[in-house]
Nucleic acid binder design. Structure first.
Lengths: 204, 204, 204, 204
DNA sequence: CATGAATGAGCCTTCATTCAT
DNA sequence: AATGAATGAAGGCTCATTCAT
């Protein structure tokens, strides 16, 4: 077979992303289980079945693997929020997100990742990605709380900004519980959010 | 002057605890700022103005310093909860604890310690201390929520166990926000708890 | 159009040498700037706009690139010395070489290469090339110093062998100064050589 | 035996310097033999009979060991120049230094060190130390050449600044020859310097 | 011929911990 | 009790080189 210069570009890119994702996945698993610092690159390599050289071929630094992970997570979140808002607004949008969030928490591979970041949070690049995601979520919540208040579907004795903070506390707290392998019962978070917002209880 | 044996020992014990506490305080500061793994014993020694030898004289292991810290924190919490329950019951007790908790969050030296534990949580000794404290708090909350429900001062459409979980989520979430140097405005957590519990808004 | 085999080969050879030289040139630049060990093949490839595979296609080893460089330098020196001796003899020949040498030193790309070799000098292949060049130069100098002494144009109180050593010291010292980015003023070396040899000062 | 706080200070300092020097000596030997980059800290440790931890206890970095070496060399040079000038002036001072310098070159342990620096010369700290030493030497030479010219003991057709440069070329060139394990015959450099300066030949 | 992903030995450095003084 | 020099296992990362495409 004959290869023109750079011909196999498409195939290569495919392979490249496949392998990159495999490494990321293994890194995720180990970061979640042991935290960033206690996870060694050697161990990730072992788990991913690659050599150390390959790891650093894809990620110049162990930290860069974490950042890649966070970035893709943030991206997914943003995408998801957009998708939700395409279909629902107000309380419904928020509850839809709660549901999606609960699913994430249930995923055993994703729980525990909260702590992976500990100690590296202050690193500018990490902080940046985290902030981006936090901001996107905050705005989503605030935006839809405002709509809900206008529609009269939630309490109106507390300004949306404060309500948004409260909701995020619930989210973060629930995430942390999940991280501590305390099972979060399905629907629990949604109920809590409803109670907090003073919206009518579900009827399903 | 002549010192009786007992006296000298008392002085020694005093010195011992003083120094031990100084080390713990420095360890706390650094663990909070950089996390357990990224804090080196050398750096703690430097900050505490002692030699490495002295450090390991007081704590056989770096982890032991963390455990000492957690244990004293747990002890303080238990003491505090007991004190509160001596004076108040039901919602009032819970809100009193919320207030104390908020004070802790405001203390810049204490915020951030939440993450210090990351990666070491699974270590049996650490997990044990954490569990003890968590259990004490949980029981305190559940106990007083039950009383509150009996008194009709909070919603009764949700069982106390679930309410307790929700309250703890708020606590943990707020603590995490504080750790991320997002200022938690005074009284905010109390309001959120009231909203969640369906208890009447404060009038003070 | 149709190309006869021989023709194609000529073209190929042309391309081959062109590329080889491009690599050598980039290697030279980087070796000069950072030394042999601190220059990475990856960096040379980047500078030359080629892939690592290509580099190792032309040079089986990083060291081989250095050797290629040294060899072509030695070859050039030998050619130059021969050329000079075709036209001049005695002091004039030496001074002509001094002039050529000074030109080389002035070339910013060539200065600094002196140190590139450090650490690899002892490697047989490297040592061989260096020795060949050093010997050629030494013999050239000695030969022409002898002629000069016969002609009475330089001091005769010191045997040519020792004079040759002295002259080479001046050369090497000047080269080193140039390498340390200390500008060597034009003609300075020639004057020094004249002073050392006791030959009459220039009158141009 | 009873030790007061910090009692053994004197002994400790003694031991400290002894060991530090031992490491420095071993580093010197290996740097000289293989160059800075090709010398591994592990190899120095092996040679000095210490652990890697100890090495980095004395020198935070491999580079710092080199800098320590250069600094002590520069210091020694400065001390020596001062000593010489206490006893001699003019040509005599310069020739005294030449003699001392030749001795250094003869020392097999010291030859070759010239190249150890290659590749690291540009590092600010290294460059600084080197520059300090070079400046001290330059000034010493210039100063004494000026005196010599006043006394009429050397040629006066060339300004001292240029003569100083020439002399340094000879020095550097000779040092390089020595580094290339080409034996520099005793007195050779002195003769060359005399010839260059036009001072009367020695009569001893 | 050219490409660049993959390799893995090897390097510098860190850091918890020990122990002679 | 206090000190800090010494230790050495372990980790992150580099880089020359190979080879399938």
């Amino acid at each position: 077979m004959h290869y023109a210069r750079g011909m196999a570009r498409t195939v290569d890119q495919h392979r490249y992303h496949e392998r990159r994702n495999a490494i990321l996945q293994e890194a995720h698993r180990q970061f979640s289980a042991s935290g960033f610092d206690r996870t060694t690159t050697a161990s990730i390599c072992r788990g991913a079945g690659i050599s150390s050289g390959t790891f650093f071929h894809y990620f110049p630094t162990k930290l860069d693997a974490l950042i890649g992970l966070l970035a893709s997570g943030a991206e997914a979140t943003v995408r998801q929020l957009a998708l939700i808002e395409q279909q629902q607004k107000g309380v419904d949008a928020i509850l839809a997100y709660v549901k999606a969030f609960e699913n994430e928490l249930t995923d055993p591979s994703y729980s525990g990742f909260v702590h992976a970041i500990a100690g590296v949070e202050q690193v500018p690049e990490v902080a940046g990605v985290l902030l981006d995601e936090a901001r996107a979520t905050s705005e989503f919540i605030t935006r839809n709380l405002a709509i809900a208040q206008e529609h009269g579907t939630i309490r109106d004795d507390v300004p949306v900004d404060r309500l948004a903070v409260w909701v995020r506390w619930l989210f973060d707290g629930a995430a942390q519980s999940a991280a501590e392998t305390i099972t979060v019962e399905a629907g629990g978070l949604a109920d809590a959010v409803r109670a907090l917002l003073g919206s009518p209880a579900r009827t399903d």
